[in-house]
Structures are given as structure tokens and as C-alpha cells.
Amino acid sequence: MGRMLRSCLQSVLKLVNSVIGMAGMGMILYSLWMMRVWYKQSGGLVFSPPWFVYTFLGLGIFLCLITCSGHIAAETANGHCLSCYMVFVFLLVMLEAAVTADIFLNRNWEEDFPEDPTGKFDELKNFVRSNFEMCKWIGLLVVAAQALSIFLAMVLRALGPDSGSYYDSDDDIVPARLPLLRNQVHHTSYTVEPNLPNNDPWKVRNREKVSR
């Protein structure tokens, strides 16, 4: 029962972790597209994308790295890997919560970010405002996946790695039978009488008397 529960938790953690990876891949593709547009606008002479493109690319790579570490932690069910994975996801959630709080509580939150000469930052803001419901549900899905991944990692860490397979190997069965084999060897004794020539003088005299 415990092995089935552990296997189910590992599969669900991989599935939930894939949502974070998909979000990271989307951010990487979007940042590469912005780099391509910026390279065309600059005429191929200057290739120095602004902070917004680098930030999107860095966050996407970070999400993909978290996804890889989460899959490794779920597969091995190692306590240290799961702990590192939970710390990374928790830091990511705290960063997202800080940015969200700054946007909703600070009216002049746009002044906290440097100027974007490409205008892609403004395009992203307009897109989010025009499709607020869709973006809201996508953001809630990603945050819910992160929170659920932390919870599943905590439960899987509490269960610990699967140690039942270690008792099914032949290496543990053979030593258990060795004492029986040793006892049989010790209890079995053989006595070998040497085949010596029968040249005893006393026996030779008795034989001569019997023959007479």
C-alpha cells in the first residue's frame, strides 16, 4: 500500500511540475521572439536586447531548471533533492508574490522598472489588460501548480524513499541460508582409516596356529 501511494505521488508531482516547465518554455520562446524582432529593428548592427528581454529569458530558464530538478527529486524521492526543490519553488512563489503586491498596491509601479526602448513591455501590459480574465486564470494555474508541488514534495519527503526492493534481492537471501549450510558442514564428519599392511607379528602367529 505504501509503495503504491509513493508511486502515485511521484507521478502526480511530475505532472504538476510539468505545468511549471511549460510556463518556462513559453517564456523562453517569447523572449527569443523579442530578440529576433529587436535584431531586425536594429538593422543587424547592434544586438543588445534591453532588460525586459533578458528578464523574461532568465525567468524561463530558471523555471525549466526547477522543472528538471523536480523531476529528478520525484523520481529518486531523495530527501535532500526534495528539500532543494521545495526551497527553489518557495523562493519563486515569494518573488511572484512581491511583484504582484507591488503592482496592486503601488499606483506608480511602472516607475520601479527601467525604460524599455523596444516597447515590448508596453505591448505585454496592453495584452494583459485586454485579456485580463485569461491571463488571470493562467497565472492562478501556475501559482496553484507551484503550491501543489511544494505540498506533494513535503508528503513524498515524509514517506521517504522506497526501501522495499532491497529485501527482494538474492544478496539478502543467500546470507540467511549460510548458517544452515555451515551447520551441515560442521555436523558431517568423515573418518578415514589408513589401509596399512597387515604385518603384525602377533596376528601372523595366530594364523599359523589355526592352520595347524
Rank of each mutant, 00 (worst) to 15 (best):
G2A: 12
L5E: 01
R6Q: 01
L9Y: 15
V12I: 02
L13K: 02
S18H: 02
V19C: 05
I20N: 14
M22I: 09
M22L: 07
G24K: 09
G24Q: 09
M25F: 11
M25C: 10
L29M: 11
L29I: 15
W33C: 08
M34Q: 08
M35R: 00
V37L: 09
V37G: 07
W38H: 05
W38K: 03
S42E: 07
G43D: 02
G43H: 04
G44I: 00
L45H: 04
L45Q: 10
P50M: 05
P50C: 06
G58E: 11
G60P: 02
G60I: 10
C64Q: 03
C68A: 09
S69H: 12
G70I: 00
I72K: 10
I72S: 10
I72M: 13
A73N: 04
T76R: 06
A77L: 11
H80I: 08
C81W: 04
S83F: 13
C84R: 12
L92V: 02
V93D: 07
E96H: 12
V99E: 14
T100D: 07
D102P: 06
I103T: 13
I103K: 11
F104L: 12
F104T: 15
L105K: 12
R107W: 05
R107M: 09
N108C: 06
E111F: 12
F113V: 15
D116C: 05
P117W: 10
T118H: 01
G119D: 11
G119F: 06
K120N: 14
F121A: 14
D122S: 07
N126T: 06
F132C: 03
M134H: 09
C135F: 15
K136W: 10
G139D: 07
G139F: 08
V143M: 12
V143L: 15
V143T: 01
V143K: 07
A144K: 00
A147H: 07
A147W: 08
L148Q: 03
L148S: 02
S149G: 13
F151C: 09
F151P: 01
F151W: 03
A153R: 03
A158H: 13
L159T: 04
S165Q: 08
D168C: 02
D170W: 14
D171Y: 09
I173L: 02
I173T: 03
I173F: 00
I173P: 00
P175H: 06
P175A: 08
R177I: 03
N183Q: 14
V185Q: 01
T188C: 12
S189H: 07
Y190A: 05
V192F: 10
E193M: 08
N198V: 14
N199H: 11
D200N: 14
P201K: 00
P201G: 05
W202S: 07
W202L: 07
K203P: 15
V204Q: 03
S211E: 12
